[in-house]
Nucleic acid binder design. Structure first.
Length: 363
DNA sequence: AAAGCGGGGCA
DNA sequence: TGCCCAGCTTT
């Protein structure tokens, strides 16, 4: 006899009473569109529901079927994704849409292992799509469920080492019926009740099953390995404007940080601030030497990535008559067209800084 | 096994 | 400020 007998039923009862409407969710037993479930799950990776909602609605409106998304250009998808972060997700999203159309006739497979083989779909997403969209039993474990399970069992091992142990416990708790509703309910509870700090145990439908609650130390789980401190990198970034009011932009490398997204030219991002010689060299390289006026420096732009802080010093440069973009892949673009390119949030901050510093420009 | 990879919201 | 998030891929 399972010591936690009744756990999943209590979770499902809570769901029937408390589940909220979401654009990708169907209440009352009907299964949502697999395309909607997949798209939402990719967007929700490391991203909050509030942030995802408008992006999800825009994607569904613009690309109603997975075949529409597969037929889109990658750059269109990146542009629509701009601001969501983790841009490899957008590239894999497009690859996955193409694969589903090419290999599965435009219908997502229901099988967890087949889903797992698709680009951008890992353990979590395969289990989530299989259970939520197709009603299959699958053991769904995300960050929320890890926290709930580690508290229910007072798992002493620290993350990420504890992941296999947590998965084994989660497996025992997962019901055969309504595994998708169960998973969504547990995630809702994890994000709204069983919160990282100050959990609302008085509102929790499974407090009576929770070892952490019984011991009065639920909040101390899950244990975590210590984190590294983030270094700070610095660079100079250039808003280079020609006589027509256009600004020089270029595309970043396809792989790596902000892969495939657009940017303004900058010196290398490094912990040591670049010396004036390097700044001069960059301006020469992109072909804007011989400017009549000295650059106007605007407010420092700060941005934090997963593993480092960044401080950019923006400079506004008026390019000379020639104004040629000598560099390979840079091109001129009017600021009112910035919304049509894949501009990440960091670069939007640069735009804001320049506009604030100039006062005369409007977007 | 560990590192790389955005951005926003919250205490 | 630091922490956390409906993680996946690459090394």
């Amino acid at each position: 006899m399972n010591r936690k007998d009744g756990f999943s039923q209590a979770i499902l009862d809570w769901y029937d009473r408390n589940a909220r409407e979401l654009p990708w969710r169907r209440l009352g037993g009907a299964h949502p569109e697999p395309y909607h479930v997949w798209l939402s799950e990719i967007m929700l990776q490391q991203t909050t529901v509030v942030t995802v909602k408008p992006y999800f609605n825009h994607f569904i409106s613009r690309w109603p079927q997975v075949s529409d998304l597969a037929a889109a250009e990658l750059d269109e998808v990146l542009t629509a994704w701009a601001g969501l972060g983790y841009y490899a997700r957008a590239r894999n999203l497009h690859k996955c849409a193409v694969a589903v159309c090419h290999n599965y006739g435009g219908s997502f497979p229901a099988d967890e292992a087949e889903l797992l083989s698709l680009p951008g779909i890992g353990d979590y997403t395969a289990a989530a799509v299989s259970s939520i969209a197709f009603g299959k039993r699958a053991v769904v474990v995300d960050g929320n469920i890890e926290r709930v399970v580690s508290r229910v069992y007072r798992i002493a091992d620290a993350l990420p080492q504890a992941k296999p142990v947590i998965k084994a416990h989660a497996d025992v708790l997962t019901p055969s019926d309504r595994a998708g509703d169960y998973a969504q309910a547990l995630m809702d509870i994890g994000s709204g009740v069983c919160t990282p700090r100050n959990p609302k145990c008085e509102l929790c439908p499974v407090a009576s099953f929770c070892d952490g609650f019984s011991a009065g130390d639920a909040e101390t789980f899950p244990q975590k390995a210590p984190k590294k401190k983030k270094p700070t990198r610095k660079a100079h970034i250039f808003w280079i404007e020609n006589g027509r009011g256009e600004v020089l932009v270029r595309r970043r490398e396809e792989s790596g940080l902000l892969g495939g997204m657009m940017e303004f030219p900058s010196t290398a991002w490094q912990e040591q601030a670049p010396v004036p010689d390097e700044v001069e060299a960059l301006l020469t390289q992109i072909g804007v030497e011989g400017t009549s006026k000295p650059p106007v420096t605007t407010e420092l732009v700060r941005h934090t990535f997963t593993h480092f802080h960044l401080e950019l010093t923006p400079h506004v440069v008026k390019a000379g008559e020639a104004g040629g973009s000598g560099s390979n892949d840079a091109f001129w673009l009017a600021p009112d067209a910035f919304s049509t390119i894949a501009l990440p949030t960091l670069m939007k901050k640069v735009v804001q800084s320049v506009f604030k510093g100039q006062g005369s420009l409007d977007l």
